Simulated assay, not measured.
Amino acid sequence: MNRILITGAGGAIGSAVAKVLAYRGASLYLHYYHSKDKTEQLANQLKEKYEDQNFVCVKADLAHPNGPDTLLDQLGEEIDGVVYASGNSDIGLFQNVKTDTIKKTIQLQLTSPFRLLQELVKPMIREKKGKILLVSSIWGLEGAATEVLYSMVKGGQNSFVKALAKEVAPSGITVNAVAPGAVDTPMMKMFGAEDLRLIKEDIPMGRLAVPEEVASLIGYLMSDAADYISGQVISINGAWYC
């Protein structure tokens, strides 16, 4: 691993991934939109710990059609790997989802990764190596009531991973996704205490995952040890869904 772009690097999973990949020797582009302070703090921490590596913060609104171009313009060199960890979720009845929410969610979780990777994969194909990983969700595999839009776009990411993996495999590029279940991140704050209790009760391991557990799996998939793993959507959910 040399130069890796992490989108959503200010989030709980994105920042945990950054720490794992930095430990493994990667220089990182740390993307953010809202979480400037968290991302810059992360970059400074990594710079102090890994002085021979580069950590650059880049800002772009990937929920906006111009977001991918804005991000690409800030990359000063070719990228060897991408971890797309940007995401959001809204809880609500299917018939009440607003048109603007639909547009932004599709842009953020389908159109933007598609457009970004169209450009970033070109040097990977030329160099015959590269690692691409998307952070999907259990609901992209199983579907969730009151999270229909989120389930739809995550399912789209899973199909995207499988199709792109087949196309770029002859160039030595791997494309995978991880599909976490319930992870202890700020996104879970949308649930009340009783809802969280019921979720934990429903999970055979009896608890939520922590971001570091998801990051550990991603770190492996982005390593040379996983060169023959591609086109996979790997669940990490405490045996919640098997």
Rank of each mutant, 00 (worst) to 15 (best):
G140W: 02
E147C: 13
K154E: 13
W139V: 14
G143D: 07
K154F: 08
E127K: 15
L134Y: 02
L120I: 11
T146L: 10
E119Q: 10
K128D: 04
V148T: 15
E127P: 03
K122T: 10
E142H: 13
I125R: 14
M124A: 01
K129N: 11
K131T: 01
Q157I: 05
G155H: 12
Q157S: 08
M124W: 01
E127D: 15
V135N: 08
G155T: 06
V148W: 02
K154H: 14
R126T: 13
M124E: 01
V148L: 13
G140F: 02
E119F: 03
L133S: 09
K122W: 07
L120F: 03
V153H: 03
M124R: 00
G156R: 00
L149V: 09
S136V: 08
V153S: 05
V121D: 06
S136W: 08
V148H: 04
I125C: 12
L149Q: 03
I125M: 15
S136A: 12
S136T: 06
L141A: 09
V121K: 12
I138F: 09
E127R: 15
E142M: 14
E147W: 10
S137R: 12
S151I: 08
A144M: 06
K131R: 13
R126W: 03
L120C: 07
M152R: 05
K154G: 12
S136N: 07
T146E: 12
L149R: 02
S136L: 09
S137E: 13
V135C: 11
L149P: 04
Y150R: 03
E147Y: 14
Y150P: 01
E142Y: 13
Q157D: 08
M124K: 00
M152H: 14
S151K: 03
E119A: 08
P123H: 00
G130Y: 07
T146W: 07
L149N: 08
G143Y: 02
P123G: 01
V135Q: 05
L134Q: 03
E127L: 14
V135F: 06
A144K: 02
K129T: 11
V135M: 10
A145G: 10
L149C: 07
V135Y: 10
K154T: 13
E119R: 04
G156W: 00
I125H: 04
G156F: 03
L120P: 06
S136P: 04
L120S: 08
I132A: 02
V148M: 10
P123Q: 00
K122A: 10
E119V: 13
M124Y: 00
P123K: 00
V153R: 07
Q157C: 06
G130L: 04
G143V: 02
I138Q: 15
I138D: 14
A145D: 08
E119Y: 02
K122Q: 15
L141C: 04
K131W: 03
G156I: 00
L149T: 05
K154M: 13
M152K: 05
G143F: 01
K122E: 13
G155F: 12
S136R: 05
E127N: 14
L120Y: 02
Q157L: 09
L149Y: 04
K128C: 04
I132W: 00
A145M: 11
W139S: 08
G156S: 01
E147D: 15
Q157W: 08
G130D: 06
P123F: 00
E142V: 15
S151N: 06
